[in-house]
Structure formats: structure tokens, C-alpha cells
Design a binder for these strands. Structure first.
Length: 467
RNA sequence: GUGGCUAUGGUAUAAUGGUUAUUACAUCGGUUUGUGGUACCGAUAAUUCGGGUUCAAUUCCCGAUAGCCACCCCA
């Protein structure tokens, strides 16, 4: 008796010492120590943290599934490209090229840049990788980071992720409608209400004629205009129709509309696209002022907007259009094409907001069981069993670093698992394991060799009756 | 790129020109080491950075940085 007590005391003292050491180690983990340099992410760059992962994963899956169904093949192009590629495609005078590109010299002295968008890269690949020899059209999709040195705001980052779809080698209103359908369905699958803003900007010649007409009209109204608009007349006449100043609204309403300046064939092409959208039941708003900021667009242009979004989500979630001249512009044969890209960061923000407001939830990873272990020998055996159950399709949560059963069951409870496995010294010796029903608390002892079958029998998802 | 607003633990917040900076959640530990949900106790953790005013600044001023808002533009 006496001896035993002594031993207990001794081990307690030992335990204390060990505990304090462990505590010291614990104190050093994580956190930020004072007077040490730390690094923040660069301006406009952000980390996507584990708690956001469920949104990103959901979006990727929705896009990939849609791409497969619509027969778009995945393409991945480099993040770095020659800057002239974008100057040529997006256009010299555009904001994206003029002030937002990350351009620098590489070690060879070449002017390269981080891609501000991917359409140019995809078209480059189409031209240089001989994709024009494939059955036409070539339908491609991508997902990846883009870079624009813009002033950051919510949903506007310097590195952001886009998913995009490009359909190269076909001039058919059905292709345009198809892209809009993919964009619309992307949000539909995520339960997010959006609407499509759409317009046609015709051919460059038609657009030029219209621009002149618009300028003629605005010149006569110059005295009514705001300062911005007077600048726009010089710089970017098509943007005149975007003005939000009250004093310009009247002038805007009376202004000529581009649709009236399109040729018959351009007009009927656009009408056909709209007919398809009607047939598909996709809500759209005709927006004569929609012109888009990249030079390569022709004919159909569209943008996707959240419905009733507040704040950051108010800006476009995505957009696209036809770019019939781009392939030729980038050195290929004259080839019609159309494409569309969606902003994932913005969509995630919208999804979070909308889901919170409407009490929708993204499904989290659910575990089937929690595996609790007790004692040294059980820990080793538990690892072995976990290893054996890998590939069983049973999702098992566990924490091998906690020694108290209480804590482990606490975790099990938080994870809302229906069952827990408990393995202690006794079970190790007997070759058994306890299966605990977390709701009723009823426990069952089974042979370790029969864990998998016993669990599958209990878990609903392995229920064969539905098959 | 232009203009504006803001900056307190991981998150959300309170307060103040002057002792030890409030609270909640989260995290970690515990309430005798083999049984969870509740409860209780405890621990860790913050005034963005740099200047100035002042006896004294987290608080007032200036600057930097970052975030946000509007414009621009776009995803």
C-alpha cells in the first residue's frame, strides 16, 4: 500500500515536470512574437482560408460538371505571357492594358506580364498549338488566377480567380446563347439569382459609324453635360451612356442607340440570340450602354449581375461576348469565336452574403464516425485500424493527440457523428472494439476484424435497399 | 488612377489624455486520469507602423501601410 502511494506520488511529480515542458512548447506554437518582423499579404492579394474552402470547392465542382456536360475541355495556359499578347488583344488604349498590367522584364530582357485575363492566352494556344486542326469548334474551359493592378476593394483584388469558357471556330447564335446559358446555370446551380445584361456592339465598322453619330448628338448637348462626360467625349464616347450624373440623364435618354446602327445581318443575329434566351427562360435586360472594356469584342456582349445584391456584389460577377476578329489578330486564320468568364472571388462573396440572408447552407464535410483511443497501446492499434479502413469509404474523424476519452467524445459530439468507435487497453487485449451510438448512448462490442462490415451495416449511406 | 471613411486579442466588440485596456465567441487546459451534449474554473491572446503635441497618447495631430466606400474600370 505504502509503496504504491509513493509510486503514485512520484509519477505525479514526473507528470508535472513533463506537463510544464509541454506547456513551454505549447506556448511557442503559433501566435506572433513581439518585435519580430512579420509579413502581410501584398496589397490586393488575399489568402483563401480553410473556412472558405467549401465555397471554392463547390464552385469548382459546379463549373467542372457543367463543362463536362457541355463538352468543354479543360485547358491550362501559363500565368506569364509576353505582354505584347495582351496589348494586341485587349487593346492599347484600354484601362486593363494601360494601367493595370503587372509588366516586368525577365532575366532575358523580354517584356512579360502576369496575365490580366485568359482569353488571349487560350486563343494563342489555339493558334500556336494547332488546335485549329481539331474538329471545329474547339470548346475550352479554364480556371485560374488573373492579375490586375487595380485599386483594391471588396471583390476587387489584384490577384483573382476566373473560370472561363471559350468556344472557338463557330459563328452561330446558338454558341452565344450556350455561353450565356452556362454562366446562368453556374449561378442557378449555386442557388444564386442573377440576371444577364446584354447588348450587341456589331462590327468595328458599325461601331465606328455609331460612335460618330453619338458624338454628333452629344456635341449639340455639350452645355448640359457633366465634366466627366466632356472628357468621355474625347476619350471613350461609348462610355457616355454609363454616366450616373443626374444632369446627363436627360441627354442620355434621347441619345441614339447602337442597335439602330447595326446592319440587318448583325441585328438579326442578335435577335436570334435573344430568341434562344427566351426559349431557355433566362432573364435578361437589354442594356444599350453595355460596351465592355476590352477591344476585341464584336456583336454579342453580356454581363452577369447579382439580383438585389448590396455592396460589393453589385458589380458584375462575370461577362463575355463574341470576338470574331481576335484569332486573326493574334496571327491565326480568320476564325469566329465567343467566350465568357466569371469572377470566383466575387461570386464567393455574393454566395456568402446571399446564403446568410436566406439561411442557406453549403454542405460541410460530414464524418460518419469518430475513432477514440485510450492509452498507449490503443493509440498504435488505432493507427493500424485507421490505416486498414482507408479506402472503405467510411469517413472517419479522429484525434490521436488527445488522451482523454472525455475530450475525444466531446469532439465527436461537435462533429455530430452518429457513431463513435472506442478502443482502450482492454479492447486491444481482447481484439474487440466498442461501437457507441452517439444519440442513444448504447454501446456494442464487436470483433476488430468485423469493424468495417458492422459499421457499414449501421450507416445509412451504405444501405443497399435504395439501390 | 482620383476623392472619402476606418484601423483595439484569431473573430466580434467596450472604454479612456493618467494604476493591471472591457466583454463575448473561438482556442487550450481542468472539475481525480474508460464515456459527449449543459454547467463551472483557469490559461493564452489586442490598441497597425513611424513621427509630433504633452509631465503623460491606445485616445489629439501628421505621415506611412492596409481595409472599406464612391468614382474610374472590371471579374
Amino acid at each position: 500500500m505504502k509503496n504504491k502511494n509513493k509510486n503514485v506520488k512520484k509519477t505525479n511529480v514526473k507528470k508535472q515536470a513533463v506537463k510544464e515542458k509541454v506547456k513551454k512548447i505549447d506556448e511557442n506554437k503559433g501566435g506572433v512574437e513581439k518585435n519580430k518582423k512579420t509579413w502581410a499579404a501584398l496589397r490586393g492579394m488575399h489568402d483563401i482560408l480553410p473556412k472558405e474552402e467549401k465555397y471554392w470547392k463547390t464552385m469548382y465542382n459546379v463549373a467542372a460538371k457543367s463543362a463536362e456536360y457541355m463538352q468543354f475541355s479543360r485547358i491550362e495556359t501559363p500565368i506569364l505571357e509576353e505582354s505584347s499578347l495582351f496589348i494586341r488583344s485587349i487593346g492599347k488604349g484600354t484601362d486593363v492594358v494601360e494601367k493595370e498590367m503587372y509588366v516586368f522584364e525577365d532575366a532575358d530582357g523580354g517584356k512579360i506580364c502576369l496575365r490580366p485575363e485568359a482569353t488571349a492566352s487560350v486563343v494563342r494556344a489555339y493558334v500556336t498549338d494547332g488546335l485549329w486542326n481539331n474538329p471545329q469548334p474547339v470548346k475550352l474551359w479554364y480556371w485560374g488566377p488573373m492579375f490586375r493592378h487595380d485599386r483594391p476593394q471588396a471583390g476587387r483584388y489584384r490577384q483573382f480567380t476566373q473560370v472561363g469558357f471559350e468556344n472557338i471556330g463557330i459563328l452561330d447564335p446558338a454558341a452565344d446563347a450556350e455561353l450565356i446559358m452556362i454562366a446562368y446555370n453556374f449561378y442557378k446551380d449555386l442557388n444564386l439569382p442573377v440576371e444577364i445584361h446584354i447588348n450587341s456592339i456589331g462590327t468595328p465598322e458599325e461601331r465606328e459609324r455609331y460612335k460618330n453619330e453619338l458624338l454628333n448628338y452629344y456635341r449639340t448637348k455639350k452645355s448640359y453635360l457633366c465634366e466627366e462626360c466632356r472628357k468621355r467625349m474625347q476619350k471613350n464616347p461609348l462610355r457616355l451612356l454609363d454616366c450616373k450624373e443626374e444632369q446627363c440623364q436627360g441627354v442620355k435618354e434621347e441619345a441614339p442607340q447602337i442597335i439602330d446602327w447595326l446592319s440587318e445581318s448583325s441585328k438579326s443575329y442578335f435577335m436570334k440570340v435573344l430568341e434562344y434566351l427566351d426559349e431557355l427562360g433566362i432573364p435578361y435586360v437589354l442594356r444599350p450602354s453595355l460596351v465592355r472594356g476590352l477591344d476585341y469584342y464584336t456583336h454579342t456582349v453580356f454581363e452577369v449581375y447579382p439580383i438585389s445584391g448590396e455592396g460589393a456584389a453589385q458589380s458584375a460577377l462575370g461577362g463575355g461576348g463574341r470576338y470574331d476578329l481576335l484569332v486573326e489578330e493574334l496571327g491565326g486564320k480568320a476564325t469566329p469565336a465567343a467566350g465568357m468568364a466569371l469572377g470566383i472571388d466575387r461570386s464567393v462573396i455574393y454566395m456568402k452574403e446571399y446564403y446568410q440572408q436566406n439561411q442557406l447552407r453549403v454542405e460541410k464535410e460530414n464524418y460518419d464516425i469518430f475513432f477514440a483511443q485510450l492509452g498507449d497501446r490503443a493509440k498504435g492499434r488505432a493507427m493500424k485500424i485507421l490505416d486498414e479502413l482507408r479506402g472503405s469509404d467510411i469517413k472517419i474523424a479522429f484525434n490521436l493527440y488527445k488522451n482523454s476519452l472525455k475530450t475525444q467524445l466531446d469532439i465527436a459530439n461537435e462533429l455530430k457523428v452518429p457513431y463513435a468507435l472506442i478502443l482502450g487497453q482492454k479492447e486491444v487485449q481482447e481484439g474487440t472494439i466498442i461501437i457507441r451510438d452517439m444519440e442513444s448512448g448504447i454501446q456494442e462490442i464487436v470483433d476488430q476484424k468485423k469493424i468495417e462490415t458492422a459499421l457499414k451495416k449501421k450507416l445509412k449511406k451504405f444501405d443497399d435497399t435504395n439501390k
